[in-house]
Amino acid sequence: MNALPVLLEAQGVAKHFGGVKALRDVSLTIRKGEIYGLIGPNGAGKTTFFNCMTGLYVPDGGGFLFDGLPLKADAPHQAAERGIARTFQNIRLFGNMSALENVMVGRHVRTHAGVFGAVLRDRRTRDEEAAIARRAEELLHYVGIEDRADDLAKNLSYGDQRRLEIARALATEPKLLCLDEPAAGMNGTETEELRVLIEGIRKDGTTILLIEHDVKLVMGLCDRVAVLDYGALIIEDVPAVVQHDPRVIEAYIGVAA
């Protein structure tokens, strides 16, 4: 595993809200092609870490190296451009756009047509538009909701909304796909389907960072796992080691084992 090149490196990332230290000096390394799990009890700082990485928050200390170059803070659209895509814990779709349109918007960052192209509707713009639609259809098919393409996103079932959000993220052609609790609220069958989907995405060449509460899912799926507690990284290792680490057990159960 260690032979794989590094994709993302967090270097001493710190973030505080008023007096609350949400992240303290978090450093971790995600390698190309792995499924990397980030777990921790509620309020441990997982989503804050995500938000810092994707540019929604500006870290108070430290920073990120992505693909060998530093990530600019406070520029979410640039993070996406560099190849980081994400989903949200509390699904954020464009509710009044169709499923297909949601994925088509995801192509924004990889396409170019501007106002003049749109108004003149020249050959290049038409071709690009057709390619956008085609790719969006493929992605809907890929996540298995192609028959819901024309439904408004807000009318999809919960599981389908999760899938649509993943399809939209994939439309940006990410090198690193960050999933924020994708299995939350799913039943057993849905979670299993999700596991298959995530493994498929990895197999097709996208590195995955997974924040998850479902410890069973994380341990079964991830190559390596990091554990956050009170904003600090307590361990980063393969699941088998993490599972039996007393600090992790303490963090979750709250008493020394």
Partner: peptide
């Protein structure tokens, strides 16, 4: 619809 999600997928809002 959702400015934050729009930023997250790479739209320079």
């Amino acid at each position: 619809e959702d400015e934050i999600a729009a930023k997250a997928i790479g739209i320079n809002t």
